[in-house]
Computed example of a mutant assay.
Amino acid sequence: MIAEMQIRNYSPRTISSYVSSLRSLSLFYNLSPDLLSLNQFKDYLSERVQVDKISNATINQAIGAWRILQCDILRRQWEDFKVKRPRREKKIPQVLSPQQVLSLLSSISNVKHYALVSLAYATGMRRNEVLQLCIKDIDSARNMIIVNRGKGNKQRQIPINNSLIKTLREYYKQYRPLKFLFEGYRVGLSYSATSFCRILQRACKKAKINKRVTPHTLRHSFATHMLERGLNLKQLQLILGHNAMKTTSIYLHVADMSSIKMPDLLQPNESCDETEPK
């Protein structure tokens, strides 16, 4: 199964998650997953939902692994083993105001930590994309970051401004990382996700921000603030690396559109010939 997913260019993280999902299913019945029926799989999911309170994301992950097993490995018809995915939860993302972000950054005195949080906010990159970013992925001549390990292993480009480049240069001169832009205590290994979250927790406490702020909160804040600054939805979709515009459009629900000048549709358009109504 691992080889099948590698051929299909699944990310290492997805492969690990799918294998872990099938391992849990197998341990639940103490049987190899290829010997289990559709009803057994549904009963397993039902038990996990009721007892373990697993999220929709975990359910979808289990269904994805189940489908690969049945269709790609065992060559069975999906209609015979199909499980409907749960309804997507429609949650409005929590964001920080621009003033809160600036206050958060002002509370960080460590050069490395400041550069890390600045990069995450100013680009809207996912947590793992930030942590897996290599030095060679930054094209300062073009003011561009190349994300080679995005979700689904899709490559994309993110424009960056001069102030962020200046911040990253100051950090690089002081720390001189070898491979990953942000490395942990061991040279050549990327910075840990846990440490990233702790930086934000400490900064929030110091800045007196009474919200649970995660790296993904910075991504949500970036997207919302970009819309408020006038970036169009299609451009934002490309920067964030979303497959569907529907995913990006959720930020319309939280963006403050009060600064946008709306055309007055009740007044005649000056570019059109004005004619008297009959």
Rank of each mutant, 00 (worst) to 15 (best):
E4G: 00
M262W: 04
N143V: 04
S140T: 13
G124E: 06
M226I: 03
T58S: 15
P277K: 10
P86C: 08
N143S: 14
T224H: 07
N232E: 11
L27K: 15
A115G: 10
T14D: 00
C272I: 15
P268F: 05
T214G: 06
R126D: 06
Y251C: 08
F81C: 08
A3Q: 09
R149D: 09
I68R: 02
D264R: 12
Q70T: 02
S107Y: 03
G124A: 07
Q94P: 05
L238T: 12
L236F: 04
I158W: 03
G124L: 05
R23Q: 12
K136W: 02
Q6W: 00
E79G: 08
L22F: 08
T224F: 01
R87H: 11
A244V: 05
I135R: 07
F180D: 03
E89W: 08
F41V: 13
S37I: 03
S24Q: 15
I146L: 14
R229S: 15
H113W: 01
N269P: 03
E228P: 02
W66L: 01
A62V: 12
A244C: 10
Q235H: 11
S271F: 14
N56L: 05
V147H: 04
I2H: 08
D52K: 14
R8E: 00
K234P: 02
Y121Q: 03
L178H: 10
I146G: 03
L22K: 09
L178T: 12
R169Y: 09
A120Q: 07
E89I: 11
P215K: 10
N243K: 13
E183R: 03
S190T: 03
R13G: 04
K173V: 04
D273I: 15
P277C: 05
Q77N: 15
R8P: 00
T247R: 00
K205G: 12
T214K: 04
I239P: 00
S37D: 06
F180H: 13
A255M: 10
R67L: 00
F28H: 15
G152P: 04
Q99R: 13
